[in-house]
Design a protein around this nucleic acid. Sequence first.
DNA 1: CTGAAAGCGCTAACAT
DNA 2: ATGTTAGCGCTTTCAG
Lengths: 338, 338
Amino acid sequence: MGVSLKDIAERAGVSLATVSNVVNGYRPVGERTRQRVQQAVDELGYSPNLSARHLRRGRTGLIALAIPELNNPYFAELAEIAITEAAGLGYTLVMENTAADRGAELALLGGSRRNTIDGLILSPVRIGRQEVLSRTADTPLVLIGEGVYDVPHDHIAIDNVAASHAAIQHLVAIGRHRIAFIGATPGGDRQSAHLRVRGYREALAAAGLPYRSRLVARTDAFGRLDGKRAMRDLLALGDPPDAVFGYNDLVAIGALRALAEAGHRVPEDVAVVGIDDIEEGRFSTPTLTTIAPDKGEIARLAVRRLIARIEGAEVAGPLTVQTPFRLIRRESTGTPGG
Amino acid sequence: MGVSLKDIAERAGVSLATVSNVVNGYRPVGERTRQRVQQAVDELGYSPNLSARHLRRGRTGLIALAIPELNNPYFAELAEIAITEAAGLGYTLVMENTAADRGAELALLGGSRRNTIDGLILSPVRIGRQEVLSRTADTPLVLIGEGVYDVPHDHIAIDNVAASHAAIQHLVAIGRHRIAFIGATPGGDRQSAHLRVRGYREALAAAGLPYRSRLVARTDAFGRLDGKRAMRDLLALGDPPDAVFGYNDLVAIGALRALAEAGHRVPEDVAVVGIDDIEEGRFSTPTLTTIAPDKGEIARLAVRRLIARIEGAEVAGPLTVQTPFRLIRRESTGTPGG
DNA sequence: CTGAAAGCGCTAACAT
DNA sequence: ATGTTAGCGCTTTCAG
């Protein structure tokens, strides 16, 4: 083992408690004493044994961010910010890959990490309100992004209906009438897809456009390949769409690819919009119009809330926070004025 | 606090040691005893307190994967695999973002995480052999991917010179003569860029093509934007290149974008190759020819080696492992036979 | 095969 | 302002 508090105490000729206080700054320490201790710390190269500290404090200093796929740029960007924020607050963030697997989400919710982590940030995709309500684990839980509402936990997300609505509105504004949606899911259980479809329907209705179920493409997942396949199917329709709204940027990029392969021009023949504002969409050809959530806000807020709960602070404000989003217009829907 | 060993011991009417043995399986336990203990464990829902275990064992069960950017799809893919592998071996992997910062790399190397982690997997970009050699920390270290050779640590990487060589060879094979490289770095300190330039030069020489320093573009970093800017500069040259090899796929995708904006056709006017085989390159327009490293092999091997060292196993085999790679031909260099 | 007990390093309550 | 000490939950000798 390395250098311990005891070694420092001996070296500096003070008690363990004093060293601890110098290190943690909990109680005031005389200036001369502090200096001696500090010197010993520096000379011996002391750093606290975290396992011991955690054992004593009953906390581990670890929080988990559980997401359906690390590989998804949206979540990677989110994770990067969250890791930094957590580190700044003295916590280590570990990533947990649920792989969009219901069992994995349930296990996490049920406390599979009970003794490893002090709190959990979860992006649920396969579980719903019921599962969250019947959770027994007592570590703080913050939900992000999707689909579970009205539960006694902090929840941070964009307004999916409004975001979807805004995207469709934009497509309508540039004169499109046959607007498809890619990324609906069978069963109503995956809420965020459901909400985005709702926003889609509402916006169509508001524009006086008919809702055609054939233009709503289901996908198993929300990756590039899913978007590509769905777009291919849509193009095979008798009267294909003149615009497509993807569940997220990845799906939209897949659609872009299918359109390119089929020889359609974007945006002239088909306009495309996504959600997430991943960097990839700023460099694709054409660049991708998207609904940009405030990832920094989501990630930082989630981490801060969680840590506040862990530390028992009275956190004011509503449990559910809707973070802002904005439409970023790029080539896939034509340049402004075009 | 939750249920502890003591609770189980009382419930089952046995000693602490026996419960511990049932839980860990270190020493044989009588069948009847084991059953009683197991029942108590199940009934009370016991799971061991990891902080206590770690304090006692002198290990934390955590390993870190330190990479220059989480956001880079290559590293995200690597991380996802590594996390899974570590979990399977009973470890939790935490991600550490060095942000390609020399200070951050040095701190990690020096043991800033000393008491948090049992071992470190590091992808160095700003430090070299000297720094690694003069490291004092005693936790196991595995280097991945880049630039530091001949140090007494496990090191897993592709053969950068050979990989680069293969890419250029392919460009030569499809008839290109003015081949540019994007992603060299000022100063020789970032080795992997250096190695890739070397492979580039060697392949040119082997093909009897002249080396023109104007065709080697430096970048500050290795992102899409860097590639785009460099490509733009290259196009401004009197006689622009007819092919470009990017330091990685991200850079190559940035180049693709610059070419599209400038109205050049790929691959007809300019062919493009990258390294990494990130999924993005399978959906870009055009799709991207690339050198694909075996990410699964790299990530799994790194984790396994590290854990083996942590657990003190005698690890056989060479310290340095070169993992295989292969060229994947896609649209950006023309379809086979084209 | 099972039990008793020491002690990992730290923090916090209690003394002084 | 500083010191003493109990004990967090676990693993691991050492005894039996």
